[in-house]
Design a protein around this nucleic acid. Structure first.
Lengths: 147, 147
DNA sequence: TTTACTGCAAATCTTTTGCATCAAC
DNA sequence: GTTGATGCAAAAGATTTGCAGTAAA
């Protein structure tokens, strides 16, 4: 990503480097807020607006994608890590990655029945995961709400 | 809905009646903001917070569901009208209703392969609709990769 | 009369923007 | 030295909340 940036003539500032690193090191998806926290830890002067501006740039260059899983928090993930989808557990907030192939039948049926080209990059499916399903007791959900 | 409310001991205020009416009369999905606009037109004194509080109540009572289609606007729709899903066109913003049956195969495969109980009431699928598909082919990067 | 509901204003929370300054090239 | 990038503060947009007054039952 940094190569791509400098290649395209963008300046390589320490802030940018750290933000890019945060996105690249994220397992899969990361919010602007999480990136900000990470960067601030080592570079107390950075501002959130820089994070947003950098993410916007990365998105414009096609290096990261933005996903709105609902709940008022947009997630970012590096394109180079490939596409994946999310099963979001509404009990415990866990995010399970879903293989692309699981959605191909849906994509095809939408295309044939509705002539709709589904962009399944941005898909989050809400539900209940295995663990929460078995431990019926409701945890005082900490991470998510968007019921 | 009004029956249900008064039945449960909630007070029937004119504001509440109008908010409920707005939700019931909406074709399918309506935002808090749209409800507010409708209500304010006839009752200039109502406040947005009343709209939100009423929607929260209706949701708690299981009379409406909340759907976050992304883009920072939450949509509400009456449960009694049955579930439906949305195909959201990212070109023109059109929202196409999708029959529940189209998603049953997905729901089942998620259950079997991931032991995940998908709550498909809250699903919005981004993509490109028929009209926009036939017209100006815009961003080559996006439509090509099928990312 | 009682207290649930409302309006208002102010607070959140996430993201954006204007602007003067600063630093990458 | 240019001018693109940053920090700061303030704005914007959606939603929430504290509080005192009001009206439904």
């Amino acid at each position: 990503m940094t190569d791509e940036l400098s290649h395209q003539g963008y300046r390589m500032t320490p802030q940018r480097l750290m933000i890019v690193a945060a996105v690249e090191n994220s397992s899969n998806h990361i919010s602007a807020d999480e990136i900000y926290s990470q960067v601030v830890a080592k570079y107390p002067n950075v501002n959130v607006s820089t994070v947003y501006r950098t993410l916007e740039l990365l998105e414009r260059l096609g290096l990261v994608t933005k996903t709105d899983l609902g709940g008022g928090r947009v997630m970012y993930h590096p394109v180079e890590k490939g596409h994946h989808h999310h099963l979001v557990c509404k009990e415990c907030g866990a995010i399970i990655d879903l293989d692309e192939s699981a959605l191909m039948p849906l994509k095809e049926s939408l295309l044939h029945q509705y002539q709709f080209i589904a962009d399944l990059r941005h898909l989050g499916i809400l539900g209940v995961c295995v663990n929460c399903r078995q431990q019926t007791p409701k945890k005082p959900a900490e991470s998510q709400q968007g019921e």
